[in-house]
């Protein structure tokens, strides 16, 4: 009985990791190109809101996800225009995006607050495969987008480390001057990856809405998942495959409070329970910045610095 609950918790952690993987992969791609986008939480929320609105209006979850993804890319474009083209402060721009998106999401979705969603993503039916003990619920109990996410993250890793454009991506974040001297358009590359990253964040929000939330709720929807995703990028040392492990781990911390509460397990005081995900993230962030961890980490060297050729 108790085993079953823990198995479910793990299965749920793997499921919720989908949002974390997508959102932090979006942040990772952006950061690898040398741009830091702190707007994740806001873009995620707009992904949630726009996906809800479209799915509510049309009843078509796939269309809703596509729109959510596009909205994410468009919002990231605002960030790209400010930071890549106009060379604005990337930190402040990201925060401005969070505030703008939070306001917009809540404004647009206010009339439908608390309305239950019309459609949802269901787990794919794998037939007998889902009945395999342990592996069944853990691996064969998810919806299509979760598997697509796994595919995306594996391809992203292969793309980054095995292909020429991937090499350019890494180079543009580490040493834009060299990329520039080879005649490649640094600004255009960064612009593109910032938008691609935003698209993934939008999809992350859309999936979160259709697979994990019951209704559109003002304020509490994403609950800081976007910020956790940002910390996850550091935790994963800017490597896509490591994101997966980190996302499952952080997903577990998001799931744990619910399980402990449902099971009336009182190992942790009730006051601390809802704080667990944030405290664990904070602890991981600090652990990853100790000198020893820093030596093996590889933050893009030109992260957050606009590329200015004229001044060289």
């Amino acid at each position: 009985m108790n085993n079953n609950i823990w198995l479910l918790t793990f299965a749920d952690s793997i499921s919720i990791a989908t949002t974390l993987i997508l959102a932090s992969l979006g942040a990772l791609l952006t950061e690898r190109s040398g741009v830091i986008n702190l707007g994740v939480e806001g873009v995620l929320l707009m992904g949630v809101a726009s996906t809800f609105l479209v799915s509510d209006g049309t009843g078509n979850p796939w269309l809703a996800l596509v729109i959510g993804t596009c909205v994410g890319a468009l919002l990231a474009m605002v960030h790209a225009v400010l930071c890549v083209v106009l060379r604005a402060n990337q930190i402040v721009s990201g925060l401005a995006l969070v505030i703008f998106c939070t306001g917009l999401a809540n404004f647009l979705a206010k009339p439908i607050e608390g309305k239950p969603k019309r459609v949802q993503l269901n787990a794919i039916d794998f037939g007998p495969l889902s009945d395999i003990p342990i592996i069944g619920p853990l691996i064969f109990g998810h919806d299509l987008i979760t598997y697509v996410t796994w595919l995306i993250v594996i391809s992203a890793s292969a793309y980054m480390f095995r292909t020429r454009p991937g090499l350019t991506l890494r180079a543009v974040g580490d040493d834009p001057a060299t990329v520039d001297s080879q005649g490649l358009p640094v600004a255009a590359i960064r612009f593109g990856y910032t938008m691609a990253g935003g698209a993934l964040m939008g999809l992350a929000g859309g999936w979160f809405m259709l697979a994990r939330s019951a209704a559109w709720q003002q304020q509490a929807t994403t609950n800081g998942i976007g910020w956790i995703a940002l910390a996850l990028v550091v935790f994963a040392a800017w490597r896509p495959l490591r994101l997966v492990f980190g996302a499952v781990l952080f997903g577990f911390t998001l799931q744990l409070p619910f399980t402990l509460q449902a099971e009336q397990i009182k190992v942790i005081p009730a006051a601390i329970l809802p704080m667990i995900p944030y405290l664990v993230t904070l602890a991981a962030l600090i652990a990853m910045s100790t000198p020893r961890a820093r030596a093996v980490l590889g933050a893009p060297k030109a992260l957050g610095q606009p590329f200015v050729r004229d001044e060289r």
């Binding site: 106009l86 604005a88 402060n89 995006l97 306001g103």
Partner: peptide
């Protein structure tokens, strides 16, 4: 009108101000 219109405007002011900064620099 939901109060969030005020938050939208707040965020937008900052976005435009950041963009406008470039004209000063």
């Amino acid at each position: 009108v939901p109060i969030h219109i005020a938050v939208i405007i707040q965020g937008a002011v900052l976005i435009f101000a950041l963009g406008g900064e470039v004209f000063r620099k």
